[in-house]
C-alpha cells in the first residue's frame, strides 16, 4: 500500500523536475542508477542469504527456543536470532504473532523484533561500505544492548 504512495510522490516530483530542467532530471536519474548499481552486488548477497534463512526457519522452531518460560536466557537467544536473521516487517509481525500463539513470551518477542529491525549481521558488509567498520560495529552493538532494555520494559508493560 505505502509503495503506491511512494511511487505517486516520486512520479509527481520527477515530472516537476522534468518540466523545470530536462538536463538536471537526466542527471538525477543517472545518479539514482549509479547509487543503485554501486550497492547491487551486496544487495544480491543479502537477498540470497535471507532466502536461505527463511527456508530454514519456521515459527514452530523459533517459538520452541524462546517460550515464555525461557526468561533472560530466552531473551538472549531471541536477540541472537533477531540479529542474525533479516526478515521483512510484513513477514516478521504476523510471524511474531504466530510465535506468541505458539507459546513465545512477550519479553522474548520484544527482543526478537527489536534486534530484527535494528541489528543486521547479514547487512553489515553493506553498512561498512558507507559507515566504515567502527561506526557499523558500534551501532550494531549499541542496538543489541538496547534491545534488552526494550525487552525489560515491554515485559513490565505487556503481560
Amino acid at each position: 500500500m505505502d509503495s503506491y504512495i511512494f511511487y505517486g510522490l516520486t512520479a509527481v516530483l520527477l515530472t516537476l523536475s522534468f518540466f523545470k530542467d530536462k538536463k538536471k532530471t537526466k542527471m538525477a536519474l543517472k545518479k539514482a542508477w549509479k547509487a543503485f548499481e554501486n550497492i547491487l552486488p551486496e544487495f544480491l548477497v543479502v537477498i540470497l542469504l535471507v532466502g536461505l534463512m527463511l527456508a530454514l526457519l519456521n515459527a514452530g522452531t523459533i517459538s520452541k527456543i524462546i517460550g515464555s518460560e525461557s526468561g533472560w536466557f530466552g531473551v538472549i537467544l531471541a536477540s541472537l536470532i533477531g540479529s542474525i536473521t533479516l526478515i521483512p516487517g510484513f513477514v516478521a509481525f504476523p510471524m511474531a504473532a504466530l510465535l506468541v500463539e505458539n507459546g513465545a513470551g512477550y519479553m522474548q518477542i520484544a527482543a526478537f523484533i527489536s534486534t530484527l529491525m535494528m541489528v543486521g549481521i547479514v547487512t553489515m558488509p553493506v553498512e561498512i561500505k558507507y559507515f566504515g567498520k567502527k561506526a557499523t560495529i558500534g551501532r550494531n552493538m549499541l542496538a543489541f544492548a538496547f534491545s534488552f532494555i526494550v525487552a525489560l520494559l515491554i515485559g513490565m508493560v505487556v503481560i
Binding site: 516520486t10 523536475s17 538536471k24 532530471t25 536519474l29 545518479k31 547509487a35 544480491l44 537477498i47 535471507v50
Partner: peptide, 28 residues
C-alpha cells in the same frame, strides 16, 4: 530458499526504484 530469494528480488524491484530516484532528485 531460491524461491524466497527470487520473491525478495521482486519485492526489491517494487520498493527500491522510488527510493533511489528520490535520492537522485534530492542530490541534484
Amino acid at each position: 530458499a531460491l524461491g524466497i530469494s527470487l520473491n525478495s528480488i521482486g519485492e526489491m524491484l517494487l520498493i527500491i526504484p522510488p527510493v533511489f530516484i528520490l535520492l537522485g532528485l534530492l542530490d541534484i
